[in-house]
């Protein structure tokens, strides 16, 4: 294990960015980095070297973030989410049928996964999502958390969680479609 005094320089920026994306507040993110490193120092002997130092520190940070979010969102978030979004309803007519429907992206969609330009668009769209949706989607798709955990963390109902994930995925899809088709023109 490297000496704790080197942690700030080696992992500081990474941990800070990781936290910043999830809590969207500079001061909080900085506090979380400090809590993480102090916590790591205390539990140094628990580090078995099975994972990299960075993974170990990240897992401590994740725990701190979840703890922070849980405290912050003790009150239900419901009012912050626009559940009856007209943006989503726009895709469908009064009968619930697609107006235009999703466009075709490629003759072989799987092959898109090999294209850097496509993955770049996915990345940009993820960064452009409304922050709270991005937070929920990141916990689900990046951290692989179950919806039950996400509900607890954000203190929202399961139904609300599904609606948020549905909206986030739908927005991602739309964003990718617009940008990808534009690129191909």
């Amino acid at each position: 294990m490297s000496h704790p005094s080197t942690w700030v320089d080696t992992y500081g920026d990474y941990l800070y960015s990781f936290a910043l994306y999830r809590v969207q507040d500079n001061a909080t993110a900085q506090d979380l980095v400090q809590d993480t490193l102090l916590g790591a120092l205390k539990s140094k002997k628990n580090f078995k070297g099975q994972s990299s130092e960075k993974t170990w520190l990240t897992s401590i940070l994740k725990y701190k973030i979840i703890d922070f979010i849980r405290k912050k969102y003790r009150e239900p978030l419901l009012e912050n989410f626009d559940l009856e979004s007209t943006a989503l309803d726009d895709h469908f007519d009064a009968m619930g049928k697609w107006k235009t429907g999703p466009a075709k992206w490629a003759s072989d969609p799987e092959q898109l996964l090999e294209q850097k330009s496509f993955l770049d668009i996915v990345k940009k769209c993820l960064q452009k999502l409304p922050k709270k949706q991005a937070g929920v989607l990141a916990l689900r798709e990046l951290e692989g958390e179950t919806t039950q955990t996400i509900c607890k963390v954000f203190n929202i109902s399961t139904t609300n969680c599904w609606v948020i994930l549905h909206r986030a995925r739908s927005l991602m899809r739309k964003c990718i479609e617009i940008n990808w088709l534009k690129k191909r023109e």
């Binding site: 920026d13 800070y16 996915v122 993820l126 960064q127 990046l142």
Partner: peptide, 22 residues
Amino acid sequence: LIHKAISKLDTDKEEIFPVTQL
């Protein structure tokens, strides 16, 4: 496809979210 693409980005998290200097 989007789910797969996001997991693919996951192989390097720094790639996904721009790094901000502490």
